[in-house]
Design a protein around this nucleic acid. Sequence first.
DNA 1: ATAATACATTCAAGATTATGAATATGACAG
DNA 2: CTGTCATATTCATAATCTTGAATGTATTAT
Lengths: 131, 131
Amino acid sequence: MNMTELQLSSNTAKVSDFLQTISAQPRLEIILTIGANEACVCHLEAFLGQRQAYISQHLMALREAGVLTARREGRFIFYRLADLELLDLIRHAARLAGVSIDSLGVSEQISSPGCECPKCMVDAPALITLV
Amino acid sequence: MNMTELQLSSNTAKVSDFLQTISAQPRLEIILTIGANEACVCHLEAFLGQRQAYISQHLMALREAGVLTARREGRFIFYRLADLELLDLIRHAARLAGVSIDSLGVSEQISSPGCECPKCMVDAPALITLV
DNA sequence: ATAATACATTCAAGATTATGAATATGACAG
DNA sequence: CTGTCATATTCATAATCTTGAATGTATTAT
């Protein structure tokens, strides 16, 4: 009988699990990088400067928590936030954490050096930037 | 150079630290038990059915994160949320986590069996109940 | 069919955190 | 100034999480 099983029994535990899933720093960064757009793994890899397997591991956790949805297009898999209100939650948390949110609008298109997928040449990447 | 020091360098890391501090289940329970009121350790101990040292450890973490403020009154120390908006953040998270928030109003006074401090006989304990 | 690309999964070791036990401190009563 | 109560702190260990390495799978190109 481990902690995870016990936690699933109460609603407080569900909130705890949810928050713990999204709040790990690399996951917050993934969420903020995806923002209101779609992003493929190669884009996240290039943008965050992390290895593919590492990104995939966190994407898997976020997918299992229902935070992300995935869509395959040819060889690429595009991830999107299941609920954009998650961005509001993070803004809310940032405010309480005393962090200044410098840019809240949809940011300009980023060149995404290192990612050659079709979407990376089109989409704007981040909705929130925590500088 | 450990992880904690690295995390302190970016704002994303501050949000991550903040969320991770509050999202551990016993800490969420403490926060929800305190709600909009004050609570002494003995009350939390009785209400949550945990040992004193255990409660104090989590209170210490929450205090260091700036989430709680403490006030001494004689032998008792009363804790209060530093910012009541934290309760809104938790409501927000509960919604995104698909958890039904059954009672959002200030709950009735609870008998707090096991806690004899003066406040426990007066205050209402919880603002949110996640059943 | 083979190779290459994009991504997923597994596994184990290291790092971190959570927890219980023991002990310390600070305030008040006597 | 001694004891007791309320709370804080320290410490060691168990549990968990993170991370990197290696490998697997699905899709497309040749």
